[in-house]
Nucleic acid binder design. Structure first.
Length: 377
RNA sequence: CCAGGGGUGGCGGAGUGGCCAAUCGCACCUGACUGUAAAUCAGGCGGGCAUGUUCCCUGCGCAGGUUCGAAUCCUGCCCCCUGGACCA
């Protein structure tokens, strides 16, 4: 019996940590799972535009991993944060409407594509959560009291801003809000992209100082466990001058670079077009978005893939994991075009339900309105 | 509120009365070359058509004005930046 329980925990750890960039810390993760308490997960989303595959598939896959591990998952629709960060024209009403309309719906259906049950997703609108909620506001102040101004200033990179950039004062509130979200919501797990690392680390550093809404297991005050998922590479070629780490960040998928991202409801032709024109040097497995996408979009869902190839190119290829694929690609035994075609077809099939959902009726209208809004800037 | 500087095409940035639909760079599009993309080269890049080396329309923050003619000069307004003043 005890043995079975151990196995179960190991399995849960594997689920929660698979395909993640970083877990802070693995020991804390294990501790949480072993506690036997009912555990809460959270991830926050800015309502910044259309949902791309990084959000719709990578984030949602990780959320599903949590749900499959028996953790209660929460999605914070961060409308106030979005407002602070001047997204969607900085119009709070539009942001709220988009959050509870388009965004919630898009995430739910993407989750479904991955085999999840949208009923498991607990959506929280930040402005609702904060309303008449002293616990949040007091925690916000308390986080502020336990963090230096310099650190907050450095943390604006979590908003996609550059360190040292000229900002209005409200933006300094943002990182503290994100941290306060975790504690006032009672979330044991804070999931975020690796670019959000600073906020989660502040949360962990402040955790033991907090009195208003400390995170507890039994009587013990604990730090939230940070799970940082991978950020997909954009399909563009990397900036010519950039090297290594800088190159990596410059390659990050971005909504502002039109064709660097595929959106969850893109048409078949759009998906094909974008992937066809994607940067994909033969034999290169590091700075290669298509390799990256195969690894983080396909293998989390599949134990085995078959890449179709014409007989004259050597016939079909079977891979059991990304490492096998990378190895062949590196040796130029797998041609970029064959891989591209496979990835495109796979995504087209996987995203079919989302596409169909946004093809008609109210969802189509919501998407149209959002696109109009983005076009107007 | 005061002083100074500035608002030009998706972005950066020239141009200070006609030769300006507006140099140039980036981005973007098309073609050539590669079994993909990139790189490279050629062309395009406000809109329209009857496609014109001297066609038409719209156009250089907004609104007027001067002039045969204005992105370029004048007047008013709006916005941004940099200092300063005020708050003390």
């Amino acid at each position: 019996m005890l043995f079975l329980l151990e196995m179960d925990i190991k399995e849960k750890i594997n689920l929660i940590s698979r395909f993640a960039e970083e877990i802070i810390t693995l020991e804390d993760l294990e501790f949480l799972l072993k506690s036997g308490e009912s555990l809460n997960h959270y991830i926050g989303f800015e309502i910044s535009g259309k949902i791309h595959l990084g959000t719709g598939l990578v984030c949602m896959q990780k959320i599903k991993d949590f749900a499959d591990a028996g953790v209660k998952v929460h999605i914070l629709l961060a409308d106030y944060h979005t407002w602070i960060n001047d997204k969607l024209g900085g119009n709070l009403e539009i942001i709220k409407k988009t959050a509870v309309g388009y965004f919630k719906e898009g995430l739910s259906i993407a989750y479904q594509c991955l085999g999840g049950n949208p009923k498991d997703l607990n959506f929280i609108l930040a402005s609702d959560f904060y309303h008449n909620n002293d616990k949040f506001w007091l925690t916000l102040i308390e986080v502020g009291k336990n963090t230096t101004l310099a650190r907050m200033k450095r943390s604006i990179t979590i908003m996609g801003r550059k360190e040292g950039e000229e900002i209005d004062f409200a933006k300094l509130l943002y990182p503290a809000m994100q941290v306060a979200d975790i504690f006032s919501g009672g979330f044991h797990f804070s999931q975020a992209g690796i670019d959000q690392r600073k906020a989660n680390v502040i949360a962990r550093d402040a955790a033991k100082q907090l009195k208003i809404s400390p995170l507890k297991i039994g009587k013990e005050i604990i730090k939230p466990v940070a799970v940082h998922h991978h950020l997909l590479l954009g399909l563009d070629k990397p900036a010519a001058s950039a090297e290594d780490e800088e190159k990596q960040t410059s390659m990050k998928m971005s909504k502002s670079k039109p064709d660097s991202a595929v959106f969850i409801h893109d048409s078949e032709d759009e998906i094909k077009r974008k992937i066809k024109k994607a940067y994909c040097p033969e034999g290169e497995i590091e700075f290669n978005p298509i390799i990256d996408w195969a690894g983080y979009l396909i293998f989390p869902c599949e134990n085995k893939i078959i890449v179709p190839r014409k007989p004259e190119h050597g016939g079909n290829l079977t891979f059991n994991n990304i490492d096998e694929l990378k190895k062949m690609f590196k040796n130029k035994e797998l041609h970029p075009e064959d891989l591209k075609n496979f990835v495109a077809e796979y995504l087209i099939e996987l995203l079919k339900p989302v596409r169909e959902h946004f093809e008609k009726g109210e969802p189509k209208k919501m998407l149209g309105e959002l696109e109009e809004l983005i076009k107007r800037g």
